[in-house]
Simulated assay, not measured.
Amino acid sequence: MIYVLFVCLGNICRSPMAEAMFRKRVEDEGLAEQFVIDSAGIGGWHQGSPPHEGTRKLLDQKGISYEGMKARQIINEDITTYDYIIAMDAEIVGALRSIAGYGSHHFIGRLLEFVEEDDRDDVPDPYYTGNFEEVYDLIETGIDRFLTYVKKDQNL
């Protein structure tokens, strides 16, 4: 199994959007049985809440399920359990590396690291900007490139 965790600040906008989109993408490619996909937030402010209304609305428009998704805060065990921990921005990467410390862990990086032709490093937080469509487009490109990377890395 390949374990993938998407992480943002509160786990209600960007990371659940990425989780739902990545789930659909691996299902469409017939790879769902090979993946465990989840999302989490650095903070626990929204723990137990469904994805943000803006995320839900956009996923509904695109026909992408987010059924059963609830915000949760990252825990220490996530660092060693997940093969790929994908952050939405550099601040989240820093927080994840702080949690991980110097112990053994797998890949921790930003989603947009996989999108070489885009100058942006971070997926902006639509909780503050309200621009859920821009975020969707960035995540869509990012997960496509990330899946290509994983398939090569895992010989799929």
Rank of each mutant, 00 (worst) to 15 (best):
G109K: 02
R25Q: 06
G94V: 08
H105I: 00
E29I: 07
E77D: 15
I37F: 05
K57F: 14
E29V: 06
G54K: 03
R25L: 15
E113F: 04
I37Q: 08
Y84Q: 02
P50M: 03
S104P: 11
G103V: 09
E113H: 08
K62M: 10
D118E: 10
G109D: 07
G101H: 14
Y82R: 02
E27V: 12
I75P: 03
L59M: 12
G30A: 10
K62G: 11
Y84C: 01
S98T: 14
Q34G: 13
E116C: 04
N76Y: 12
I37K: 09
Q47I: 08
L112A: 05
Y102I: 13
G43V: 04
G63A: 03
V36M: 07
Y66G: 04
Q47C: 08
G94P: 06
I85Y: 00
K57N: 14
I85V: 03
V115E: 00
E27A: 13
I108E: 11
I79A: 08
M88A: 11
G94Y: 09
G41P: 11
G68A: 07
R25Y: 07
I64D: 04
Y66H: 11
K62L: 07
E33Q: 14
I37G: 08
S104E: 12
E29C: 10
F114D: 03
I79V: 13
I37P: 11
S39D: 06
R110K: 15
A90V: 04
E116H: 12
G48V: 02
H106S: 15
P50E: 07
T80M: 03
I64E: 04
R25D: 04
I42K: 00
L59S: 11
G101R: 13
A87M: 00
R120Y: 09
A32C: 05
N76M: 13
G43S: 05
A95I: 01
M69I: 14
E91T: 14
R110S: 10
G109R: 01
S49A: 09
T81R: 15
I37S: 08
E116N: 10
E27P: 11
Y66R: 04
D38L: 04
A100W: 09
F35V: 07
G109C: 03
A90N: 06
E27Y: 09
F35P: 09
G30V: 11
I108V: 12
E29K: 12
Y102K: 13
G30D: 06
K57C: 12
I85G: 00
S49T: 05
T81A: 14
R72Q: 02
G68N: 13
P51V: 03
Y102W: 08
I37D: 09
Q73I: 02
S49W: 05
G43I: 02
G48P: 10
T81Y: 15
H52E: 10
P50G: 04
